[in-house]
Simulated scan of single mutants.
Amino acid sequence: MKDLGAAKKILGMEIRRKRSSRKLWLSRKGYIKKVLERFDMANAKPVSILLANHFNLYQSPKCEVKIRGMEQVPYASAVGCLMYAMVCTRPDLAQAVIQISKYMANLGREHWNAVKLVLRYLKGTTEYGLMFRGQKCGSVVAYVDSDYAEDLDNRRSTTGYVFTLAGGPICWRSVLQYVVALSTMEAEYMALGDAAKEALWVQGLVTELGVEQGGVQLHCDSQDAIFLAKNQVYHSRTKHIHMRFHKIRELVASGEIILEKVHTSENAADMLTKVVTAEKFKHCLELLHVFQC
């Protein structure tokens, strides 16, 4: 028996190491290049940001002629490819993917233009991936955010969270909340509740991998939501909130979740909930160690 050489690919992800500086990169640049070729975007002009506020994606076509005109567009295939690219190595795609995936059944020209814009973004960031730093000890650090009532179809809010270990993201999510929040504070509190459930799973996983983990640090930019989670005060503003979201109070009291206030400008989950400026988007990528591999 003998030791085997270091893996260069796993589950479709390409691995690059620099042992002298104890760094490791994960990417899917080979897969992304194939996706761009498949949808004739290999020579497209790259862009630096995913979606812009001027895209009115909530508008679906009403005219039968326009609906039939979109039947031959490979929208579902393109969205599926983008979803696969997002998993494991590209948290920067999460918010855009959730937006474009809502219109699979009734898409318009604007929706297809949005997909092509995401592909143009991938053209300019094909080499991007996750960077992890070797550490003797480390713990899970998470960021959570929400965007209040920005879904124009049903006025539901968006939850976004990302968990990091060894400096890089290990899991992330951008998803519409399943009930309508009645205030910004409630939307943030519901996002905390969802992130807390994920924290329990992540905590169990890293413990099995031999990482010494105390309470998970959960960073949020809403002081009101943090106050509500730490202080079990019952009043008229919160009595309607579903009990499932109050689980976080128990986790905070037991020390399994350590809530920390973070300034909005330093909240890496901000890009998972809304369209942000190019400067903020780039800063979020830097916070999460999403770099060129």
Rank of each mutant, 00 (worst) to 15 (best):
V118C: 05
L130H: 00
D3G: 01
L228E: 12
T159G: 02
K102E: 05
R173N: 13
D153K: 11
R244L: 07
K239E: 14
C293H: 01
E64Q: 11
E256R: 15
I248Q: 01
R22G: 08
K136I: 06
R244P: 00
V73I: 15
G255S: 03
L287C: 09
T264W: 01
R68S: 11
Y84H: 13
F281S: 10
V162I: 15
L259R: 01
Y103E: 08
R90G: 09
Y84T: 03
K8T: 13
T89H: 04
L82I: 15
T126N: 10
R68L: 10
E110N: 07
K18Q: 14
I257Q: 04
A114V: 12
E71D: 09
C137V: 09
G80A: 06
V118M: 09
W172P: 10
V180F: 09
Y143E: 02
V276H: 09
H242G: 01
P61N: 02
H219S: 01
G210F: 00
S48Y: 00
H54C: 13
E127C: 05
T207F: 10
L57Q: 02
M104D: 11
R120S: 14
N106D: 10
R120Q: 15
A195S: 12
I170K: 07
L152F: 01
S183F: 12
M185E: 03
Y58F: 08
E256G: 08
D221Y: 05
D153L: 12
E266P: 00
A199E: 04
S254P: 02
R244Y: 10
S183L: 07
K123Y: 00
S254R: 08
T159R: 04
L107P: 11
L119S: 07
F291C: 15
L130K: 07
F281P: 12
A269I: 02
C284E: 00
